[in-house]
Design a protein around this nucleic acid. Structure first.
Length: 500
RNA sequence: GGGCCAGUAACUCAGUGGUAGAGUAUCGCCCUUUUAAGGCGAGAGUCGAAGGUUCGAAUCCUUCCUGGCUCACCA
């Protein structure tokens, strides 16, 4: 057996025995008359008349005795106990059954009955292999004690759970619930927007120029075209081209890619929903975000007072809308609006805030992050950002230093970002050129000028409200998850050195 | 990138300088209503990797790998 694991070896031997007995361990077809939940919900007819049912599933527990055995099999809908007796299915079939292991897929034909301990079970009349597992599942056992489920030897190693998510899903049922909820949230977002007359679109992931956010991209290459391409960091500039093209309400559920650090709220590929609505402004979009997220919370969490970490978060509308500079005054104690550059720099030095680029916008942004963000537990629209850090947003008429922009914070998580979109092509060109200059000065996250996008805007773009919402973080909030890895099925991991 | 913690059997873990352990799982025998099934017996390990100290290292030291938490970074 060399260095082959003895557990795998034992299962391969059973596989061999099945073949010797003329049994196909991997047949092409499976008979199923009922999903397990149907039987658990309504066992009546089969019990009374011993009508045979066909169920399929995976063996999740196994208690083999001399001439009779019990096991539980599980399909996507639930788990049911099987009682299998030699004298009922015959010596040959029982011998085949004895080659079963935890994790095998099987078919059972039988009728429903209650055991002595009053557990609804299936009395097997036929037994068939559907697929043999040759690698053992981690052994997790559970027991009901005082009505509560006690789990023994839980599959808990986070690294294994993330790397082998299929095992995590199988062995930690609450994980499956999280991802069902994720699916539901995205579905509800689509329904919400569709009902408002939005259409869903798809725009390029491979882009010759990246833009729409301040971030570093992943770079790739098209062989035949001999050109560099970037994986998109945002969808913004393409969706705006669609607004220019005459669509008035568009959205895209999009994977975006940012080549930056990873932590509990950042994965290099993440999912946003971006939407653009012509003739709307950022106030309209705030209303939309409130309606959409409160509606989802109501449906998914069953309440508007949701629990996240140590907090109870009240999503009852309306949510507070607070100017960024006002929040800075409140939490950092500095009136940035009436401070000059020297005073701002002195403040940063005093609080050891490091600045790579020294302009009004960046400084304010840094102070905000340091002093304010973590305090924004209850839903808060932070409104009116500095112009320098918002090159795609329209200036406020009464204060051109600020733009009509908001970010929505809940539970200390930044969930989304929105502008009254800049639609003045002259102003837009100046802003992008200013960004390009910042880039030359060493700001690796500033974008280059996208001439094709500017040309599109020169043909005329209506006033538009635009939004990007981080779906992963919204799922974190609504499932009380505290790491983005827990809401992404296959989070980014380093190469596994054990498996080389 | 910094700090702290962890990596020992398939899973969950004990083992702080002297022959690698337990429970579950596996294998064999017994067991026809069990459910963390039970009884008896057996086998199973590059102790994350590589160096070093030592008569002797899972254990002490160094470097590295992987992960977790946290800080920094990050629209």
């Amino acid at each position: 057996m060399d260095n082959e694991n003895q557990l795998i070896h034992a299962r391969k031997e059973k596989l061999g025995r099945l073949l010797e007995m003329g049994t196909n361990p991997f047949p092409t077809k499976a008979e199923r008359s009922h999903q397990i939940k149907n039987i658990l919900d309504d066992p009546g007819a089969s019990i009374d008349n011993k009508i045979s049912l066909d169920v399929v599933g995976r063996i999740r527990s196994l208690r083999k005795m001399g001439k009779a055995s019990f096991c539980h099999i599980e399909d996507e809908t639930g788990k049911i106990q099987i009682y299998i007796k030699r004298d009922d299915i015959g010596q040959e079939k029982y011998k085949i059954f004895k080659q079963c292991d935890l994790g095998d897929f099987v078919h059972v034909k039988g009728f429903v009955f209650y055991t002595q301990t009053n557990e609804l079970s299936i009395h097997a009349e036929e037994f068939t292999f559907l697929a043999k597992a040759i690698r053992p599942l981690p052994v997790v056992k559970e027991k009901i004690e005082d009505g509560k489920k006690v789990v023994y030897d839980q599959f808990a190693d986070k690294e294994l759970r993330y790397r082998k998510r299929y095992l995590d899903l199988l062995l930690n049922p609450e994980v499956k619930e999280t991802f069902k909820t994720r699916s539901k949230i995205i579905k509800m977002m689509r329904e919400f927007l569709d009902a408002r007359g939005y259409i869903e679109v798809e725009t390029p992931i491979l882009q010759p120029l990246y833009g729409g956010a301040a971030a570093q991209p992943f770079v790739t290459k098209h062989n035949k075209l001999e050109m560099e391409l970037y994986l998109r960091i945002a969808d913004e500039l393409y969706l705006k081209r669609l607004i220019i093209g005459g669509f008035e309400k568009v959205y895209e559920v999009c994977k975006d890619f940012r080549n930056e650090g990873m932590d509990r709220t950042h994965n290099p590929e993440f999912t946003q929903i971006e939407l653009y609505e012509a003739y709307a402004d950022y106030n309209d979009i705030m209303d939309l975000v409130e309606d959409m997220l409160a509606g989802i919370a109501h449906e998914v969490c069953g309440t508007l007072k949701i629990k996240y970490d140590k907090h109870i978060i009240d999503l009852t509308k309306p949510w507070q809308r607070r100017p960024m500079l006002e929040l800075i005054k409140e939490y950092a104690g500095i009136d940035v609006e009436n401070s000059n550059m020297d005073e701002l720099l002195a403040f940063c030095k005093e609080h050891e805030i490091e600045l790579d680029v020294k302009n009004f916008g960046k400084i304010i942004d840094e102070i905000f992050k340091r002093f304010v963000e973590d305090n924004l537990i209850q839903p808060t629209f932070v409104i009116d950002y500095p112009k320098e850090i918002s090159p795609l947003a329209k200036s406020k008429p009464e204060n051109p230093q600020l733009v009509e922009r908001f970010e929505i914070f809940i539970g200390g998580l930044e969930l989304g970002n929105c502008f009254s979109e800049l639609n003045d092509p002259i102003d837009q060109r100046e802003r992008l050129e200013s960004q390009a200059k910042q880039r030359k000065l060493g700001d690796v996250e500033a974008n280059e000028v996208d001439e094709d996008f500017l040309e599109a805007m020169e043909y005329g773009m209506p006033p538009t409200g635009g939004l990007g919402l981080g779906i992963d973080r919204i799922v974190m909030l609504f499932t009380n998850s505290h790491n983005i890895k827990d809401v992404i099925l296959f989070p980014q991991m380093r190469q596994d050195s054990h498996n080389e």
